[in-house]
């Protein structure tokens, strides 16, 4: 069977950055921007929650675990649905779809980040904490300057892995019509009808390159 990739070449700019010239961001560029923003947000949120769960081991930790368990039990699509409908309902509408997907992805991954940061903190020998307290730091200072830096350094590879998952998960934005890579590719596919193999192979290759580079980076960091 002969493959004809001219359809991909002709639509390459659309696949890579959407209608950027008309001021409408899309394609691979939007995918990356969404993944990066969701990644940054989820790091912030996840670490904060981990600190809360670490410091308040009783009820707050249990509640956070329950919350994470609920998030994990529901398909990501539904988390996206919820934010897509709830955020405008609560704050009076008017946020772009892409933003609600970013919030949903961040919300979803922060549960995983919370768990791994907490595990990282708990894996440190408690002598580290005692040494910090003994030299006169406050509890928060010990956390900020002694424990978190060590725990986070060990977790860098898993964060990189998580970022790769985010890149793949942005494809779910199709459900609320955000023109990221998968969405624009299926638009091109339904417009042309004739070249599904070429189109989907090409965008799969794009995702593959991005994600395997990331996992190579993660591996080389953790081997160091």
């Amino acid at each position: 069977m002969g493959l004809d990739f001219t359809v991909v070449v002709r639509n390459l700019d659309y696949l890579l950055w959407g209608r950027l010239a008309e001021g409408e961001l899309g394609g691979l560029l939007l995918t990356v921007i969404m993944a990066v923003s969701a990644g940054a947000l989820s790091l912030l949120l996840g670490i904060t929650l981990a600190v809360i769960a670490w410091r308040y081991a009783a009820i707050p930790r249990k509640l956070l675990f329950l919350w994470a368990e609920l998030i994990r039990g529901v398909p990501l699509i539904f988390v996206i649905f919820w934010l897509y409908f709830l955020v405008p309902a609560l704050f009076g509408g008017g946020i772009p779809n892409a933003l609600s997907v970013i919030l949903a992805l961040a919300w979803f991954s922060s549960a995983a980040i919370m768990h791994s940061v907490l595990a990282g903190l708990q894996a440190l020998p408690c002598s580290q904490y005692e040494a910090g307290i003994a030299s006169g730091f406050t509890e928060f200072q010990v956390l900020r300057w002694i424990l978190l830096p060590q725990a986070l350094k060990n977790l860098i590879p898993s964060f990189v892995g998580l970022f790769a998952s985010l890149i793949k998960d942005t494809s779910l934005a199709f459900i609320v019509n955000v023109p990221e890579l998968t969405m624009v590719a299926s638009q091109v596919n339904s417009r042309t009808q004739l070249f599904p193999t070429e189109i989907f192979l090409s965008i799969a290759a794009l995702y593959f390159i991005l994600c395997s580079v990331l996992s190579l980076i993660a591996r080389s960091i953790s081997n160091r």
Binding site: F174, T182, A185, A204
Partner: peptide, 19 residues
């Protein structure tokens, strides 16, 4: 393993369905 782990499931499903 590498191919299927490093591409989104949605793209895979679209590929199987359309292509």
């Amino acid at each position: 393993v590498a191919v299927f782990r490093n591409t989104p499931l949605l793209v895979q499903i679209l590929f199987w369905y359309f292509a």
